[in-house]
Design a protein around this nucleic acid. Structure first.
Length: 838
RNA sequence: GCGCGAGUGGGCAAGCUGGUAAAGCCGCUCGGUUCAGAACCGAGAGAUUCUGCGGGUUCGACUCCCGCCUCGCGCACCA
């Protein structure tokens, strides 16, 4: 039988299923390894090659760890709540429960076809009531501790669609569907106090092995900044206007104030004369999207008519509103120091407000001076230097002495809006009275609060979730009172914030996860997922873990010890001179250029994200049908470094398929299935080849440098074929080396070619023998004055004299040293010989 | 605008703490095999002293430092 993936792959997939080969063991005395992939949203479209590409790294390492004797937890599940299923429900009337179950079926089938070594007995789905019971329970714990609260938050309200939209459903201030205008309106909804964990989330980053870029992303999102809070009295009002500033030392230069247009204080301080203008400006801001507000940097604003008193100068200064001040940050109000802040400077110039320099240096007529200097026009602080934060410290001291301010730290991080006005999500387990006041959270015994089936998934038109239509479900009689359930549901990021814990104990009916099991399995040893989750999911999951840790429910403060990203699989897209897409099948490759088939029309090749619209999506089903899962896996590994984006090329996969067939022929005669392995004594040359491969592949897997590991397998396969190897002692470990990458062919060879029973997965991983993995005699470059002039062959550990003897005996070298004096010799064992002549 | 990452033959790439640049794969050329093709096996070319450009450190720079260009990603009026 020739190499036929279509028959051997299903055979071994069945074998793994029947034998529970990849089920994690409940033996806590073994060393553990937890390899986690970010679970997918089960889209109705099924898998594309990007999915297997992101799962291959964890699978390869899991397979190696099993062979190394680890108890491996490598699970898979589904992040099943989400908008596409809800959209399908609205458009086609299909219940999300049903469409999601079908999509999950399909995903599972496709994932199994890829030969991933998942422990399918631990599969979870966030939309399963047995699962979301605990998502809801964790919410009730957060609620009990005051970390879940209701507050007025801004939402994207689309009057035409009668619904609230998610941020990514809003494009340029219009709804993604239909292009209707969207407004930002305030609505009471649930939030989680992630800000309370800001400091911990920041500090924790120093304890984990994550890509620096991702840590930086989180640090920026948390956005810690040190400064002071300053109280400004308002003329004719009792409550002061509080601002946050990082530059309290510039207080003497504060010549006006700015309050965010949404700030509630605006209503009370605006004078009659200004009311109309203020209202108009507020309305204008509300209709602008967040993006618009941030891209238009032209300064606009309106004077409220109110006057504040600068506590340092005693001067009355105007209070304006402007959209360059953000309501959610700091106190939503600033003291403006136009001389030393560029934004304030631009605003002051536009509105013709006073600019007063209080730090020496620069030219404040042409731009704000935000560099160092010495305080001036600052009363008691005159002459203080700003260097080393001296002036800031002095200013804070002054504020505290005069009772009008204090040191303060703020964060950019906002609380986590934990509610969506949608159907397809976890119901929030809260009961309210008729007036809308929260009465209590549901108890553990009352959970799960199952999402009721409804007739109609379309928006209610009032902004409420479609759940408000489920009257029977909604109303609860309790102690003679009639209560109503919360109708908002949780956001998509709820269920994914703790799923890694559920995998440790997926069937537990008493708790979300027993402490014993999470203590054993956690933290995750390798977490692989896309960099797009840097500030969302990865931050939320860390917060939940921190909370559960504080409650004594889990041991570790951080869930993911080591994180790695995978790049996107892109594809070549071709455009004709009119910039129209030319399908791949109609493109002809002529050397360096590409043409439309049978014509002289040149097309431009571009690398782009795979998308249906571009017609460049590659479906794993088709790839597997043509070449098998093993070839696909090997090809994906070979494409390039795991964390880089890389283009899919159909010629490339064929090459790996050819490689697997060459590999197969090392073990079987021709295309027959007669094994050719013998117990012959291996030659030294053969041992050298295989031990080098063992060393290289083992090492590369640890580094997740899968492309170079495959390259090493290519070399070993080629060399052993040339040597005509039949020795079991060489071929057996070689088969084990390919197992993590191409597990089906490895199992088949292990069974039929090598006659080994019990499967290859737990066969002890081979060790490289240094004697064979390292060369005794090496080729070394010889440089004259740093330029390579020749090559010598010497023992790897040769001393300088030996190397020089070999070099001077070399003709090419002789030519360069003849008649010259050797001034110096640089010799590094095993690396280089450099002769400096004069 | 700020931050991060990258730039190596026609394409994808490798190159460890600075030490013979280009392993491996595609594509290309030639040869063997074949009636022919496919597949297979083998060989070879690919740098106009070379790693985006310009400088520096060094016996020696793809690797380190400075400046610039291009591309990608993230953040973005955060006081």
């Amino acid at each position: 039988m020739p190499y036929e993936p279509s028959s051997i792959e299903p055979r071994w997939q069945r074998y793994w299923d029947d034998n529970g080969t990849f089920c994690a063991k409940e033996d806590f005395s073994l060393p553990k390894f937890y390899a986690l992939d970010m679970f997918p949203y089960p889209s109705g479209k099924g898998l594309h090659v990007g999915h297997p590409a992101s799962y291959i790294g964890g699978d390869v390492l899991s397979r190696k760890r099993r062979a190394q004797g680890y108890n491996v937890l490598h699970p898979m599940g589904y992040d099943a709540f989400g908008l596409p299923a809800e959209q399908k429900a609205i458009e086609e009337g299909v219940a999300p429960q049903k469409s999601t179950a079908e999509a999950v079926e399909n995903f599972r089938r496709q994932l199994k076809m890829c030969g991933f070594s998942y422990d399918w007995s631990r599969e979870v789905s966030t939309a399963d009531p047995d699962y979301y019971k605990w998502t809801q329970w964790i919410f009730t714990q957060l609620f009990d501790k005051g970390l879940a609260y209701e507050a007025e938050e801004f939402v994207n309200w689309c009057p035409a669609l009668g619904t609230v939209l998610a941020n990514d459903e809003v494009i340029d201030g219009k709804s993604e569907r239909g292009g209707h205008p969207v407004e930002r309106v305030r609505r009471k909804q649930w939030s989680l106090k992630i800000t309370q964990y800001a400091e911990q989330l920041l500090a924790g980053l120093d304890t984990i092995d994550w890509p620096e870029m991702t840590k930086t992303g989180q640090r920026e999102r948390i956005g810690r900044s040190e400064g002071a809070e300053i109280h400004f009295k308002l003329v004719g009002h009792d409550t002061p206007l509080v601002v946050f500033t990082t530059r309290p030392d510039t207080l003497w230069g504060a010549t006006y104030m700015v309050v965010a247009p949404e700030h509630p204080i605006v209503e009370t301080i605006t004078t009659e004369a200004q009311r109309e203008a203020v209202r108009a400006y507020q309305k204008r801001t509300a209709s602008m999207s967040e993006i618009d507000r941030q891209t238009t940097k032209d300064k606009t604003g309106v004077d409220t008519g109110a006057r504040a008193i600068n506590p340092a100068t005693g001067e009355q200064i105007p209070v304006w509103i402007s959209d360059y001040v953000i309501y959610g940050y700091g106190t939503g109000a600033i003291m403006a120091v136009p001389a030393h802040d560029q934004r304030d400077w631009e605003f002051a110039k536009a509105m013709e407000l006073t600019i007063r320099q209080v730090i020496s240096g620069g030219d404040v007529e042409s731009a704000a001076h935000d560099g160092e200097g010495v305080l001036m026009a600052s009363g008691p602080l005159d002459g203080t230097t700003t260097e080393g934060g001296v002036a800031i410290k002095a200013a804070i001291q002054w504020l505290e002495q005069h009772g009008c301010g204090t040191a303060r730290i703020t964060y950019k991080l906002r609380d986590w809006t934990f509610a969506r006005q949608r159907y397809w999500g976890e119901p929030i387990p809260i009961l309210k009275d008729e007036a809308g006041n929260v009465v209590r959270a549901l108890t553990q015994a009352e959970l799960p609060l199952v999402l009721p089936e409804v007739e109609e998934y379309a928006p209610t038109g009032t902004g409420e979730s479609p759940l408000s239509r489920a009257q029977d479900w909604l109303r609860v009689e309790e102690g003679g009172r009639s209560l109503v359930r919360e109708t908002d549901t949780m956001p998509g990021s709820a269920g994914s914030s703790w799923y890694f814990l559920r995998y440790c104990d997926p069937k537990n009916g008493e708790a979300f996860c027993s402490r014993e099991k999470s203590d054993y399995w956690m933290p995750v040893d390798l977490y692989v997922g896309g960099p797009e989750h840097t500030v969302g999911h990865l931050m939320y999951a860390r917060m939940w873990q921190r909370f559960l840790h504080e409650q004594g429910l889990v041991r570790d403060p951080e869930p993911f010890q080591k994180l790695r990203h995978q790049g996107m699989i892109t594809a070549f897209t071709y455009y004709d001179p009119d910039k129209r897409i030319v399908p791949y099948a109609e493109v002809e490759d002529r050397g360096a250029h590409h043409f439309k088939k049978g014509t002289d029309i040149e097309v431009v090749q571009k690398i782009e994200k795979m998308s249906k619209r571009k017609g460049n999506v590659v479906n794993p089903d088709e790839v597997i049908r043509e070449y098998g899962a093993d070839a696909m896996r090997v090809y994906i590994c070979f494409l390039g470094p795991m964390d880089q984006d890389k283009p899919w090329a159909s010629t490339g996969i064929k090459a790996q398929w050819d490689f697997l067939r060459r590999f197969w022929r090392l073990f079987f005669e021709g295309d027959a299935d007669t094994p050719r392995v013998t117990d012959a004594e291996p030659s030294e040359a053969e041992l050298r080849v295989v031990h080098k491969a063992i060393a290289k592949v083992s090492d590369d897997i640890e580094k997740l440098a899968l492309n170079t590991a495959i390259s090493a397998l290519h070399i070993a396969t080629r060399d052993l074929a040339q040597l005509g190897t039949t020795a079991r002692a060489v071929l057996e470990p070689l088969c084990q080396l390919i197992q993590p990458f191409a597990p089906h062919i490895a199992e088949q060879i292990w069974d039929k070619g090598l006659g080994k029973a019990g499967g290859i997965s737990y066969a002890k991983w081979p060790e490289a023998d240094e004697r064979y993995a390292k060369d005794d005699v090496i080729k070394m470059g010889v440089q004259i004055l740093g330029k390579t002039r020749g090559e010598i062959e010497i023992p790897a550990d040769a001393d300088e004299a030996t190397a020089m003897a070999a070099a001077t005996a070399n003709e090419a070298i002789q030519k360069h040293i003849e008649g010259k004096a050797i001034v110096r010799v640089v010799y590094k064992v095993g690396r280089i010989l450099n002769i400096i002549v004069k």
